[in-house]
């Protein structure tokens, strides 16, 4: 019997998400406020191209900054291991050093496609944050984003997705030590994703 026929016959082959969310300690109002403003200010600094400042003040040196591939498979196979030995496919999986290289490239002034300057505008919404369940005092923050890019005369693109951040307080300031960016696209429809989120 085919999988479709099994479903039709009433056999439960797959279902929408039935897992309850992880129970985590909630943030007091002032910490929630700090996290929200932190993420929003970060987006403004990036919009203003203050990338080196962002690099030095918003990230930790052990950061993992990644955009994994969202493989489009049937629900019944979502959790099946992928074939082959790939330790992880994505659009990027950067450490602190690699992010630094990306920034250095932009700073050379030799990136022809960034001249004239592109307009990039980031919109963050649906910010939600909780304490991580490991008791470290670190915070997991979810946010939805819209990125509007406009280039040259008529070249424009809008991309949607979600950021999942792990933030820790270093010398009284929040810094991100893990950022996973989920694009709501299997095929990246913009010509590239060489920008920071």
């Amino acid at each position: 019997m085919s999988a479709v026929a099994e479903k039709v016959a009433g056999k439960k082959v797959c279902a929408v998400n039935s897992e309850p969310p992880v129970e985590r300690e909630q943030l007091p109002m002032e910490v929630m406020f700090e996290i929200e403003r932190h993420l929003i200010r970060e987006a403004r600094l990036l919009d203003e191209e203050r990338i080196r400042y962002w690099y030095e003040n918003y990230l930790t040196e052990d950061i993992v900054y990644s955009m994994p591939i969202n493989v489009s498979r049937y629900r019944r196979e979502q959790t099946r291991p992928l074939p082959g030995t790939n330790p992880g496919a994505g659009a990027f999986m950067d450490n602190y050093e690699l992010i630094g290289m990306r920034i250095t490239r932009l700073e050379t002034g030799l990136v022809w496609m960034e001249d004239p300057q592109n307009a990039i505008r980031r919109f963050l919404t649906n910010i939600d944050a909780e304490y991580l369940e490991d008791g470290s005092g670190d915070v997991i923050a979810y946010s939805n984003f819209t990125v509007y890019r406009n280039r040259r005369q008529r070249d424009q693109n809008i991309t949607y997705g979600q950021k999942v951040d792990l933030l820790r307080k270093v010398d009284g300031k929040w810094r991100c030590y893990n950022r996973t960016i989920h694009m709501d696209q299997r095929v990246i429809l913009d010509k590239n994703v060489y920008f920071f989120l």
Binding site: G90, A91, L98, R105, N192, Y194
Partner: peptide, 17 residues
């Protein structure tokens, strides 16, 4: 794999050029 993404992925330092 990481360096391929870094250089010739869709966010790659050379691919975007």
């Amino acid at each position: 794999s990481v360096m391929n993404m870094m250089t010739f992925g869709t966010a790659g330092m050379l691919e975007t050029d």
